[in-house]
Write a protein that binds this DNA or RNA. Structure first.
Lengths: 206, 206
DNA sequence: ACCTGAACACCGTTCAAGT
DNA sequence: ACCTGAACACCGTTCAAGT
C-alpha cells in the first residue's frame, strides 16, 4: 500500500488505542499496539519519533488535558482549588491503573501536565506562598497524589491481606468490610485534608 | 562445566549484584545480570524460579531487611516510631532510585517488607488506633512514602524547571538555591509531620 | 508525508543435557 | 542440585523502498 491517500493513523487515535490496550491487558507493547491498529509496527514511528517513551508521555497528556483544573472558580480559595486539583489528578490516574507505573517510571515533559502544575503554583503564589513554601507545597502534593495513584491500582490492603492470618493488619482488614478501592480513596481524602492543614500552617509562617 | 563442586551463585550474591547493576546503569536485564556474574542467563532460574519478578521482589527484601524498625524503642511513642519508620523506608528507597519504579510496578510479597508493615500496624494498634483508623493510617503513610521515594529519584523540581522560563514554578525554583535532592527530603519531612498531626486527630476520634 | 517489510540487537523464559 | 547452550516468542528501533 505504501502511503495511503488519507492517513491511517493520527497521534490521537494511537494514544486512545494505547490507553485502551493498557486498560484491557495491563501492558503496552508497540507491536501489539500496531496489530490493534491494523498497521505495521514501524508506522508508529512516523507519528511518535521518540518511540515508546513518547507514546507513554502522550498518554500522560491525555490524562492531564481532560478535566485538570486550570484556574480558580469564582469564590474558590487556594485550599478548595488545591483539593480539586489533587482529587482530579488522582482520579485521572485511578481510572487507568495500568498506566500509572509506566507514567511514574518516566520523566514528565508533556505541556498539559506541566501546565496543570503551573496552575497550582500560580494559585499558591496568589494565596501568599513564598517561593520556598510554594515548591514544598507542590512537591508534597505531587508525592502524595502519585503514591495514592499507585495505591489505587494496587492497594496496600490487597497484599497486606495475604500475610499471616493472626497479624494485626490482617485482623484489621477482616474487621472492616469496605472494598479496597473505597478504602484507598477514603485514605487519600483523609491524608489530603491533613496535608492541606499542614500547608495552611506553612503559608502562615512565611 | 555443568554442576560445579561449590555453587557459583547464591540468592544473596545475585541480589547484591542486581542492585549494584541497577545503581550503576539504571536498568536490570537478566542476560546483563548473568554476564555481570560470569554465568549463563538460565542459571539465574535455578535460584529464582519466579524469574525476573522474583529477583525484583528479592531486592525489595534487601531494602526492607536492612534498618527498618521492627519495634518501639524504650520511651518512644507511636508518633516517634512512625516517623522513624517512614524516614527509614524512604531513605532505603532513595538510596537506590532506579529500583523504585521496578518496585512500585509490582505487588509486595516479600516477608521482610510485610513484617515492617505489621510492625507499624502493631504500634498503631497499641497506641489506640481502631481497625478502620489503623488501615487508613497505614495506607496514607504508604502512599506518601512511595510517592516521596519516586520524587527522591526524579524530583518535581527537575522537570518543572524545564517549563516556561517566566512561569511561577520556574521563578520559584530559580529564587531558591537548594539542591533538588535536599528539597525533596525537606518536603518529605514537612509532609510527614502534617500527616502525623492528622493521624493524631484520627486516633482521638476513635 | 506516511506506510511497509526486513533487519538488528536485545529481552524473559523453558528445557534437555551434562555432572 | 546446579550450570550450560540452544531454542522460542517476544521486545523496541532503524532504515531503505514504495507511493
Amino acid at each position: 500500500m505504501a502511503r495511503p491517500t488519507t492517513p491511517l493513523l493520527s497521534r490521537e487515535l494511537v494514544l486512545r488505542t494505547a490507553l485502551d490496550l493498557l486498560d484491557r491487558t495491563g501492558e503496552l507493547g508497540l507491536p501489539r499496539l500496531a496489530r490493534e491498529l491494523d498497521v505495521s509496527t514501524s508506522s508508529l514511528y512516523h507519528h511518535f519519533k521518540g518511540g515508546r517513551e513518547e507514546v507513554v508521555e502522550g498518554i500522560r497528556g491525555l490524562l492531564s488535558a481532560d478535566g485538570m483544573p486550570v484556574s480558580v472558580l469564582p469564590g474558590e480559595d487556594w485550599r478548595e482549588f488545591t483539593r480539586r486539583w489533587a482529587r482530579q489528578y488522582r482520579a485521572a490516574f485511578a481510572a487507568h491503573p495500568a498506566a500509572v507505573p509506566l507514567l511514574t517510571a518516566q520523566t514528565v515533559s508533556h505541556p498539559a501536565t506541566l501546565a496543570s502544575y503551573e496552575a497550582l503554583a500560580d494559585v499558591l503564589h496568589d494565596a501568599g506562598f513564598g517561593d520556598e513554601e510554594l515548591l514544598h507545597a507542590v512537591t508534597v502534593l505531587d508525592c502524595f497524589v502519585l503514591g495514592s495513584a499507585l495505591d489505587a491500582g494496587a492497594p496496600v490492603q490487597v497484599w497486606a491481606d495475604s500475610g499471616r492470618e493472626d497479624s494485626r493488619l490482617s485482623r484489621a482488614i477482616r474487621a472492616t468490610r469496605a472494598q479496597p478501592g473505597d478504602r484507598s480513596e477514603r485514605a487519600f481524602l483523609l491524608g489530603l485534608e491533613s496535608l492541606l492543614t499542614g500547608l495552611e500552617r506553612l503559608r502562615g509562617s512565611a
